[in-house]
Computed example of a mutant assay.
Amino acid sequence: MTLDGKQHPTQREWHGAHHFWCYRPNAFRWDGERIAGINFYPLASQMRKWMDRSGDLPVVTDADRQKSGGYKNPYTFNGVALVLLLSRVINAFHEYATMSSPDHDSMDAEVERLRLYNELLLYSARVCEVVIKQLLHCTQFPEARYRRMALGALLESPCPSCKRENGNVPHTVSMVGTLAHPFRLCLEFEHCAMDHMDLVNKLRNSQAAHSEIQALNIRSVQESKDQLLKDGTEVMTSFHHMLWHLEKLEGHMFSDLAEKGDSITMLRLNGLPPEERNYRLIPGERFVFGSDADRR
């Protein structure tokens, strides 16, 4: 908290290492041997556009999972549900904070303020988590590595391969920085986006998770509404900024996979047999079949 009474992200140094990674076949949606599309939905992009009133939110249901060529990324389905839930919370927050509630007394208004503010914090952090995990699902990292990670651990956590030996502390790894690194986005993430994610995560952990919550502060209905509008707007402003960075990462990965998918499709159409389609897809690098990188 700063002197102006607003929450601002703390500038900190992020030391998490960035691991080398490749895409796995599940980065694509498949219809038999044919690539049908990319196996993630640009959730951050669509959520930001919806918040800017320039786009609609996606609807991907469990029925789509059964379709040939449909999404098989579990975090796509989780993410679609979460962004739709958050959109309802944002609408409810804005409506309650800006419109009159003649049937509510001071206690009603304060409880509603706490409920809506908590839901904004919880769902904004969860949406960030699922956006990151949806992209990680397209990499060769085993899901057990990140499945149970909360947002803070995705930003920076101890390397699971390092054991404490002779009292040494294992180095840290950033899964977010690791995703951003091949596209030369890691610096802007570490100097901006991750600070905003860290702020939302700390607010969630200190005010809206586990047993922690703000205390009731019974005052007039309008005072509770004014605080809700102020606090909720600050959280959503930080969240919107995070989405802008995550949208860039989604866009780079989507374009990268689309180019690689076109090259793989051409190899298939030109008669490359299935037994030779063991590709090594390195993010951010042009795919050339038969190159030294592909043979490694």
Rank of each mutant, 00 (worst) to 15 (best):
T2Q: 11
D4F: 04
G5M: 11
G5K: 00
K6C: 05
Q7I: 12
R12L: 06
I38G: 01
N39G: 11
Q46M: 10
M47S: 09
R48E: 15
S54W: 01
G55K: 05
D62P: 00
D62E: 13
A63L: 13
Q66K: 08
K67G: 01
K72I: 05
N73L: 02
P74W: 06
Y75H: 09
N78Q: 09
G79A: 05
L84I: 10
S87N: 05
E95H: 04
D105L: 01
R113E: 09
Y117N: 06
N118Y: 01
L121W: 02
L122K: 08
Y123F: 15
C128R: 03
C138Y: 01
F141M: 10
P142S: 05
A144Q: 12
R145L: 15
R147I: 14
G152Y: 06
A153M: 02
C162L: 01
E165R: 08
N168M: 09
P170C: 04
V176H: 00
L179N: 05
A180W: 11
F183N: 13
E188L: 12
H191G: 14
V200N: 10
S206E: 14
H210Y: 15
E212W: 05
I213P: 01
Q214T: 09
S224G: 07
L228T: 11
L228V: 08
K230N: 00
T233Q: 06
E234K: 12
V235T: 13
V235I: 14
T237E: 15
L246Q: 08
L249D: 06
F254Q: 07
F254A: 14
D256W: 15
I264N: 10
T265N: 08
L267S: 02
P274S: 06
V288W: 14
S291C: 06
